[in-house]
Amino acid sequence: MSSSVSLALRDVHLAFGRNQVLRGVDLEVARGATACVIGPSGSGKSTLLRTVNRLLEPDRGDVLLDGRSVLRDDPDVLRQRVGMVFQQFNLFPHMSVLRNVTLALRRKRRLGDDEAVAVAREHLDRVGLAAKADARPGQLSGGQQQRVAIARALAMQPEVMLFDEATSALDPELVKGVLALMAELSAQGMTMVVVTHEMGFAREVADTVAFMDAGVVLEAGAPNAIFEAAQHPRLRRFLSQVL
């Protein structure tokens, strides 16, 4: 995927009222690289992801794609460059699987009906669900729904993909298929930020692992450095609990 971009977060701050959720986050993701963000619940991981596509606006700091700040861009245009996959899939339950994928293609990429359907089918095929195009999301298993959600995001040809605990809501036996799809995407050179509790995935697939706690990245580095030679006591404690 040659159209991927690099991503950088610089000193990002964000508060909900008096609750300081992000207190100066820095994160660098090279073009085509995969960064996994790990850390305890409530550490600000999901909030951080949402500042990248500006579902949440940072109070301070900067978000850069290919070195250029995106904070002055039209958010709707920015979001077409940044795909996002959610914990709860968030497919639109009143539309068929196919319509879920074609909706933004027709509205935002301005494709004609035939072309939108062709692109959608291609991406559903890529996640192995071309046969489910006419089903309703409610008729699919969680794993299938999440793969449709990934296809829906990929169909927009994003330059960065964000995954917000994409496998946390799945039954254990369905996790593997979704992780495999994400690993494939990573291997193809998509720039990705993956918030995850799947330490195995982080160790195997990530180029960078960032450990967040209380609204800051306490430690970031190659998976080996994080998992085998953690410096920060808080990270060591966290790893001892999850591994």
Binding site: V127, G128, L129, K132, A135, G138, Q139, L140, S141, G143, Q144, R147, E173, L174, K176, G177, V178, L179, A180, L181, A183, E184, A187, G200, E204
Partner: peptide, 20 residues
Amino acid sequence: ATGPAHDDPDDLDLALPGAA
């Protein structure tokens, strides 16, 4: 429901070589 909701083997067939 007209389709199977669970136990669909589709979910497991993506164990791609090298992925894990």
